[in-house]
Structure formats: C-alpha cells, structure tokens
C-alpha cells in the first residue's frame, strides 16, 4: 500500500494499492497552513482507507515544484513517516500527478482528446509573478506521463509564448491529486525506475542579500 503526500500547492494525502486502486484521498486547499494540517490529513487518509500504518509499504513524496515553505512540510513528513515504518520514499515530480490524472481521465472518457494526442503543459502558480510548468505528451509503456520539458519557471507574461514555442496546450492546476502521485510511484516501482530527484525541486535560489560595507552612522 502506498501513502502519497504532497504539499506543493495545498496539502494532499492518499492511500493507493500497488495495482492502482485508490483507497483514500484527502486534502486541504489552504495554500498556507501545511504544517497545521499534515498530521491530521495523514491520519484521515489511513482511516478512510481502512489501513494501519503497518500496511504502508512505500511513501510517495511530491518533490515540487511549489512554494518552498509549504513544499518542505510534505517532503519532511514523507521522509519521517517512511523512517518510522522503515519503508522507502519514492520521490515524484508533483506535476506528474496532474499529468497522470489528465491522461487517465482522457483514456477512460475520451474526454480531453487534445491531452491524449498533443503536448500539454501542467501549469501551477509559483508566486512572485512566475508560473511553474512541465510539458508532457502521452503515457509511456510503464504507464507514466512522458515529460518533454521542465519542470521550469517562467514569468507569468511569458508563459503563453513559451508554450506556443514548444507546441503545448496549457492546463492550469489548482491542486495536486495525491492518489495520482501515489499511482505514479506505484508504476515507477513496478518498472524499477526512479522518476524524480531525491531533493526538493525548488527551481529558485534562496533570497539573500549580501551584506555591503557596514552602514555608516552620522558622526
């Protein structure tokens, strides 16, 4: 059983069976407050899935991109939950979860033909007048979304030009489906592949101001 945790936008936790059956998915849309809700969300996801902590074999961690302060809460939680159970963490690019949901929805309903056939970009708010985006096209043989470009940041006003250049249609996302995050992890595991880096996808250096010479006071 895979526990999925993502706090790159709101906070989302899910429990998914290795074969992809979704047992639970709970979330809070609050774009702050990740630290407040994360413990309760994990408890609820386990309870709604009718599983105990010892049923969890892997923890899928949404590595971003996303606003740093919130993003870290979920990664830290995923790591310590896994440590507590002695099970591995499976890092997942948060946008992959959105892409997987779009592609599966499309496969089931024939709904978004554009998404099935063409390149599309998952776009999320990166704050500071920037968007984070990742470009995908279809699913590979392992059932995982094929990443063509990104994740990367771009100024908001440049996004449409950037996407036109790579020929991708735009899909804005307001939430990360944790069940899809866990499913991506399940598929990566069965394929024996790593699909994300082990470290947070900040995509931005920390804000720092180098100290100048000490300010002079008036004599």
């Amino acid at each position: 059983m895979i526990l999925g945790i993502d706090t790159s936008l709101g906070s989302a936790v899910a429990v998914v069976e290795p074969d992809g059956v979704i047992r639970s998915q709970v979330e809070s849309a609050d774009p702050r407050g990740h630290a407040e809700v994360i413990g309760t969300l994990i408890e609820r996801a386990l309870a709604e899935a009718s599983v105990t902590v010892s049923d969890i074999s892997h923890v899928a961690a949404g590595m971003g991109p996303g606003p740093f302060t919130g993003l870290r809460v979920g990664i830290a939680a995923a790591r310590t939950f896994a440590l507590g159970r002695g099970v591995p963490v499976v890092p997942v690019v948060s946008h992959d979860a959105v892409a997987l949901e779009l592609l599966l929805h499309d496969a089931l309903t024939g709904g978004y033909q554009d998404v099935a056939d063409e390149a599309f970009a998952v776009v999320t708010d990166a704050r500071r007048r920037e968007f984070a985006y990742t470009v995908y096209r279809g699913l590979d043989d392992d059932g995982l979304p094929v990443r063509l470009d990104g994740p990367a940041l771009t100024p908001r006003e440049d996004l449409d030009d950037v996407l036109r250049t790579v020929g991708a249609i735009r899909r804005d996302a307001e939430r990360i489906p944790a069940a899809m995050l866990a499913l991506a992890a399940a598929r990566a595991l069965s394929a024996g592949r790593a699909i994300a880096p082990a470290d947070a996808l900040y995509l931005r250096s920390p804000d720092v101001t180098m100290p100048g010479a000490p300010k002079r006071v008036n004599l």
């Binding site: 994360i38 994990i42 902590v53 870290r72 830290a76 939950f81």
Partner: peptide, 11 residues
Amino acid sequence: VGAAKALAVSL
C-alpha cells in the same frame, strides 16, 4: 513540525 507529526503518526 511536519516531520514530527508524520513521525508520531507512523510510530
């Protein structure tokens, strides 16, 4: 805080 909560739940 995030780490401690998840650790406590998992233990």
